[in-house]
Structures are given as structure tokens and as C-alpha cells.
């Protein structure tokens, strides 16, 4: 379980003024839940994810994981970034093996696990490629495999499909759900796409524009496993989308 208690984040702007990015956020995320944080750009949703990741210290308040205060990054929380952030000097296999090796797993075993993961994300045959030789969608598959390789309890996904074209994005969403169905890790998923949030999540946390506050938490009560083609015809799915888009329009005025 992840608990975020009254977290606020203040940044100094280049003009040396304080900018309130997050204001008084409290949120509890149950184990095994797929939770999306949805909001207009600049609402601090990524910052909230970085706080849970331990990459950023909140100005006020605290985040806890399993009752213990988060003080830094750890392999129990695995990030996947929009920019992929793959190590350019390592091959696909080298990238995926990085985590297990850091965890002290023997080379041969780490390699075997990593090869299996690369196959699972659909990149069998690309083990020796370098990231620069892959398309955006393939890079993000590698990044996902690299993170899954050290078995985090929570996946922290920061607009992971935001840099991909619509077709690739849809495929990766389906694949992510398939992978998630197997072991139901807790996922915290930041996005600005309403459809993506509703399609993937158990819960959508709507945020307001700067300063970021929680505006509403919407439970998405749709059956799993979810099939995109079925959902698109499902009136409940359509209703969620319309409802959230309306809220989005209110909070995103001027955008």
C-alpha cells in the first residue's frame, strides 16, 4: 500500500519566485491496483510520481510505502519514463540485465531471466541491438522489461506512451494490460489522455491545473480482462470518458 499524506511541493522558478506545484495531496493506493493520475500539463502529476519514486523530496508532507517513509529510490518501485531513459552504451540485453545484476543475481541467471523478459515484451531476436537501432515503441518495451527485471512491487509509469504514435500506443496499452493481468503489480500511471486512463485503470485520480490538487477520484468499474474493441462499444466506458472529459474541460480552461 502507498500512502501519500498532505504532500505539497514548492519549486523555485528561475526568477527566484516560489511556485506551488502540488498542494496538499492525500491519496492511498491499494496493492495490486492500477491507478492513473490524470490532469492537464503542468499540474504536477509527474512530480507526484517522482515523490513516490523517491527521486524528489516533497516540500511538505510525506509518502509512505508499506508504512515506511519513502526517503529515496529503491528497487521496490520501478519507474518507466516517457523518454525511455535507456542506457545508450548497453545493448537491449545489457539494459534489461542491469537491474538483476545490481541486485546481485549471478550473470548466467540474470541473462536467462532477461532473455525471457525480452521475449515476453515481444522483442525476441533484438537482444544484441542498441537502443538507437530501435523504434520508439520498441525502446519503451525494453524500458518496461528493464524495470520488470528487478521485480518492483510498484510500477511508476510517467506518461510512458506519450511519445509514441497512436497505433503503437494502443498496442503497448494492450500489452501492458496483458502483462499486468499476470501478476497484478501495483501501477501508478501518469497520463494526460482520458481514454488511456479509463481503459487501463481501476481508479482515475483527476487533478486540477496548477497548483495541482486532487479534484476527484473516479472508480472505473469495468470488467477485466479488458478488450479495447469490446469497451469501445460499451456504454459504461463511453460514459466514463464523456464524464471525465467534461471535468477536464472545466479544469483545463485556457488550454
Amino acid at each position: 500500500m502507498i500512502e501519500i499524506n498532505q504532500v505539497s511541493q514548492v519549486f523555485q522558478t528561475s526568477a527566484r519566485q516560489d511556485h506551488l506545484a502540488l498542494s496538499d495531496i492525500s491519496l492511498t493506493i491499494q496493492d495490486g491496483a492500477f491507478v492513473s493520475i490524470l490532469g492537464p500539463s503542468g499540474c504536477g502529476k509527474s512530480t507526484l510520481l517522482y515523490i513516490v519514486g523517491g527521486f524528489v523530496r516533497p516540500t511538505r508532507g510525506a509518502a509512505k510505502m508499506k508504512g515506511r517513509a519513502i526517503t529515496g529510490p529503491g528497487p521496490d518501485r520501478g519507474p518507466v519514463f516517457q523518454e525511455f531513459a535507456l542506457f545508450p552504451w548497453k545493448s537491449v540485453l545489457g539494459n534489461v540485465m542491469y537491474g538483476p545484476r545490481q541486485q546481485g543475481i549471478k550473470h548466467a541467471e540474470a541473462e536467462a531471466q532477461s532473455r525471457a523478459l525480452i521475449e515476453m515484451v515481444g522483442l525476441k531476436g533484438f537482444e544484441d541491438f542498441y537502443p538507437k537501432e530501435l523504434s520508439g515503441g520498441m525502446k519503451q518495451r525494453v524500458a518496461l522489461a528493464r524495470t520488470l527485471a528487478y521485480h518492483p512491487e510498484v510500477l511508476l509509469m510517467d506518461e510512458p506512451f506519450g511519445a509514441l504514435d497512436a497505433h503503437t500506443r494502443t498496442r503497448l496499452q494492450n500489452d501492458l494490460l496483458n502483462i499486468w493481468e499476470r501478476d497484478r503489480k501495483t501501477v501508478l500511471f501518469v497520463t494526460h489522455s482520458v481514454e488511456e486512463a479509463v481503459f487501463l485503470s481501476d481508479k482515475v485520480v483527476m487533478m486540477t491545473r496548477s497548483p495541482g490538487r486532487i479534484r476527484e477520484i473516479i472508480e472505473i468499474d469495468l470488467p477485466r480482462p479488458r478488450r479495447r474493441t469490446e469497451l469501445l462499444l460499451d456504454p459504461r466506458y463511453q460514459k466514463y470518458i464523456v464524464e471525465i472529459e467534461r471535468m477536464f474541460d472545466d479544469s483545463g480552461e485556457g488550454e
Binding site: 519514486g53 527521486f55 529515496g72 529510490p73 529503491g74 528497487p75 518501485r77 520501478g78 519507474p79 519514463f81 523518454e83 531513459a85 542506457f87 542491469y98 537491474g99 545490481q102 541486485q103 528493464r146 524495470t147 528487478y150 518492483p152
Partner: peptide, 23 residues
């Protein structure tokens, strides 16, 4: 160096003092 490369390595369990040589 891109901050997110460092974050990715730290999350994978690389201690801060090893970030210099590994990332």
C-alpha cells in the same frame, strides 16, 4: 547527463556512490 538515466539506475538498486562510474 540526463537525470532520468541516473534515476533509472538508482531505482534498479545502484548505490549513489556507484552512479559516477556506472552512469
Amino acid at each position: 547527463v540526463e537525470q532520468k538515466l541516473i534515476w533509472s539506475a538508482m531505482a534498479a538498486g545502484t548505490p549513489p556512490r556507484e552512479i559516477l562510474f556506472k552512469v
